[in-house]
Write a protein that binds this DNA or RNA. Structure first.
Lengths: 208, 208
DNA sequence: TTCAAAACCCCCTCATTAGGGGATTGCACT
DNA sequence: AGTGCAATCCCCTAATGAGGGGGTTTTGAA
């Protein structure tokens, strides 16, 4: 028997989901709550197989709840329920440790399927959510518009590793003044004025 | 009419896909190739709406091909076809700019659907692929083992943005010596000895 | 209540970095 | 043959950072 807990501040929706899941013999909804105020205690007690978690809830958001749960439990499957797919929090939820992501409008036809899928080790997602996830992996990967020379990239790389000018000079068998020259060039090209800015930019633009 | 090009070194599979797609009126397969040796030229000429791309091909891999295509074209949808879901290259393909990812075994029942989905702006994925993608986003996010205080995190964040000690002091309305104290603590906790190392570590450990 | 840790402040010195000048060599492109 | 650019090296000064001291006050947990 698959045990399930529902968190959603919408009473009607909670009811509908209970109804929907009651029609499947192997599922047992062992709890539903309008907020996450006692989520840690509840999950510890019930040890559900699957949690359905609304993202937008008052006081403790679904994302916070996932974080709380993941502090002591890495195995229970959590499927997020969200109204809008342009919700920027969706990615946060993924990073927090949710397993699946379903738009509320697609609950009727896809929820049962999604539950089976997480249990099988999958990551069910509504298409538009999947798109966001993929986009987040692709973002920025088109850089290289700063056209740093090979040597400059090398210096930037060593810099990011925490090397001082002196250490880089030794590593590359060139004078410290040459390092300085390269650094100046790099700053110019990246339009920054310090090591920290340069490295920060390098990471953000995936130059490293 | 939706135009489609297929790249796969398996002649039988290419044939099956052609056959499968020919049964859908709105699809027109305008080309199929066993390798990607002339992929840039072919794509430039045909300007297909969708490309089906095998990942494992001799000489130029599907991933390389995606990179080549994305150099001059950001709009054509590319669906990767892969045999194994444990292929570590799947993530590379995503980052290279593919839109969807289908296991070959699920082609018969899901290919038509996947094509419609990318055209609608989605990101169709086989469940096990989705799982990998999600896992890649979640990985490492369990850091926090350096237990920096809230203030220290704030300082580290500002540092990474390229602020000097002076600027941070001004921004936080505290003395520059206090910044210095926080920095010293941060270095101690992260076990580093310079700004650059600290920021590099912060990025690598997802502290920022 | 006591104790530890966080957050704040101050001083010192030496090393390093930022930013501004130069210069020479060698390679590639025209 | 000249032009541009990357890569190398040099010098200078002012600003900043690293690392070592020394503190107080506030706060939260034991």
């Amino acid at each position: 028997m698959i045990t399930i807990i529902i968190y959603d501040d919408n009473n009607d929706l909670r009811g509908s989901i209970r109804q929907l899941l009651s029609e499947v013999d192997r599922f047992a909804v062992t709890g539903d709550h309008a907020n996450c105020n006692h989520v840690m205690q509840q999950v510890k007690e019930m040890k559900p197989d699957v949690i359905l978690m609304d993202i937008d809830m008052p006081l403790i958001s679904g994302i916070e709840a996932v974080r709380l749960i993941r502090k002591f439990n890495r195995t229970t499957h959590i499927i997020m329920l969200t109204v809008f797919d342009d919700n920027k929090h969706v990615l946060d939820a993924i990073c927090a440790g949710a397993s699946g992501y379903l738009l509320k409008k697609s609950i009727p036809e896809k929820l049962v399927n999604a539950i089976d899928e997480v249990l099988a080790g999958g990551a069910p997602m509504s298409p538009s959510i999947a798109k966001m996830v993929v986009a987040s992996l692709q973002q920025g990967k088109e850089a290289e518009r700063y056209d740093l020379s090979a040597r400059e990239k090398e210096v930037l790389y060593l810099l990011a590793k925490g090397n001082s000018f002196k250490m880089m000079a030794a590593a590359l068998f060139i004078s410290i003044d040459t390092i300085r020259s390269h650094i100046k060039k790099i700053y110019e090209k990246l339009q920054v004025h310090s090591q920290t800015e340069a490295i920060s930019k390098a990471y953000n633009e995936k130059l490293i």
